[in-house]
Design a protein around this nucleic acid. Structure first.
Length: 426
RNA sequence: GCGAGCGUAGCCAAGUGGUUAAGGCAGCGGAUUGUGGUUCCGCCACUCGGGGGUUCGAGUCCCCUCGUUCGCCCCA
């Protein structure tokens, strides 16, 4: 088996599936532009440092999932595992704060993580995301969540769980970390191996361990929310209130901590039960320290990212097959007729119709069969007879009704045809 | 990195040690040299992911390997 095939964790998105992607992209563009978010496109690879400093050295993403390589100039580069870091880098590099804050941005593109593929997880995957840079206002937190909600709802996705939490500011977190470590240390031998390791490396991550015994121990652990400073607490209450005012049902999940180091205050996840183990379709939070961390001015920010592969999986369960958008299928036989059918195809396309031209040259019977399978509403037939008198047979494929139409009348009849096609589609 | 399942045609598949590897869908050709969605006929795997082994005999059993799926970890 030496045939070349797509690499593990990468896949081809074939035309039947692309229509779902386009549906998401169309809806997203509309929602973003109505909320004054502008698209930003950043490079697919960056200096390795950028991700190490932003995402955090101790995280799994940086520790074991990055596609990192040396280029010919011996620089260490990394294919982006996520895009917040890149957007923040661009924000700083181009002094976007000078264009006024907040900057509301969105992006869409491929990301790369070296992991074992499984349902809803690829090595090259795609994320759609938003970032609001330069606002600490709780309304910004609520706005980005509301936009995510709009997007998912417009796509027809329901049965989603919105979980939110606050991990406070840096001081809150440090104090809580200490308390958690103090509480957990006596139980260390009973924790699962990963959690034991995290106890020193990244204790907060222990909270969302799936091990039963670890979770039992955590039942009586100190609660993160009780370690929030009064300001952080007030802030979180405000975000929750704003979400409720918007009618966005959500639950507080005190165990929700995210895997990337840069988060502060609000963190949230939107999950679905229809995806198997990879339940999260959208996740994000506030990252007030990141811009400064990467060398910019202190800038509060909040954002999220959503996995396109997971969204399309959900969409496909809702709509197993998108209907054909084809209006006409053109059939012809004989030199002159074939030449005329090409002319007619172009003419109809210029009038705004979607037209497929049969170029097989096979028998009419075969061509009709293909017309039927194409999903077109009507077919236009040009044979010897029609070629002689510059007409075509217009056949409505569903009813089988057929009428003669002069080739020169097509543009005059366009409006009528449009209406009839619309009627057949409905 | 770890665990489990699965690899037979473009797709879905039967086959569970014994002569020539079912069937269905799609495709192509024909019945029907100008009318489809029904029907009928024909064509479409020197070979069962690859390699090695056991056996008189292997798609079928064993080992290795590659690929893939789902799960763990982690994440969108």
């Amino acid at each position: 088996m030496s045939r070349i095939q797509a690499l593990r964790g990468t896949r081809d998105i074939l035309p039947d599936e692309v229509s779902y992607w386009q549906q998401i992209e169309t809806v997203a563009r509309d929602i973003f532009s109505k909320a004054a978010y502008r698209e930003i496109r950043t490079p697919i690879f960056e200096q390795t440092d950028l991700f190490e400093r932003s995402i955090g050295e101790a995280t799994d993403v940086v520790g074991k999932e990055m596609y990192t390589f040396k280029d010919r100039g011996d620089r260490s580069l990394t294919l982006r595992p996520e895009n917040t870091a890149g957007v923040v880098r661009a924000f700083i590099e181009h002094h976007l704060q000078a264009q006024g804050t907040p900057q509301r941005l969105w992006y869409l593109g491929p990301m790369f993580r070296y992991e074992r593929p499984q349902k809803g997880r690829q090595r090259q995957f795609h994320q759609l995301g938003v970032e609001v840079l330069g606002s600490a206002d709780p309304r910004a937190d609520a706005e980005v969540i509301a936009i995510a909600s709009d997007l998912l709802q417009t796509l027809g996705l329901t049965d989603l769980r919105f979980a939110v939490n606050s991990i406070g500011n840096l001081d809150d977190r440090n104090q809580y970390r200490e308390a958690l470590v103090t509480y957990l240390t006596p139980y260390k031998p009973e924790l699962d191996a990963d959690s034991q390791d995290r106890l020193t490396r990244n204790p907060l991550r222990i909270l969302d361990s799936k091990e039963a015994r670890t979770q039992e121990i955590l039942c009586d652990a100190p609660n993160l929310l009780q370690y929030l400073s009064p300001e952080s607490k007030t802030r979180f209450d405000r975000v929750q209130q704003l979400l409720s005012d918007l009618g966005i049902a959500h639950t507080i999940d005190p165990r929700l901590v995210r895997g990337l180091d840069y988060y502060t205050h609000t963190v949230f996840e939107i999950q679905s039960d229809a995806l198997g183990a990879q339940a999260t379709v959208c996740a994000g939070g506030r990252y007030d320290g990141l811009v400064q961390e990467l060398g910019g001015e202190a800038t509060a920010a909040v954002g999220w990212a959503s996995g396109l592969e997971r969204l399309t999986l959900l969409l496909q369960t809702l709509q197993p097959l998108l209907p054909s958008a084809l209006d006409f299928y053109l059939i012809s036989k004989g030199d002159r007729a074939e030449a005329q059918s090409l002319q007619l195809a172009q003419q109809l396309r210029h009038l705004g119709f979607a037209v497929e031209l049969d170029v097989s040259g096979s028998a009419f019977g075969k061509q009709f069969k293909r017309a039927d399978r194409s999903g077109a509403i009507a077919c236009l037939v040009v044979g010897e007879t029609e070629a002689d008198n510059q007409t075509a047979q217009l056949k409505w494929l569903k009813s089988g009704e057929q009428e003669a139409i002069a080739q020169t009348d097509l543009s005059d009849q366009a409006e009528r045809l449009r209406q009839q096609i619309a009627a057949h589609r409905a």
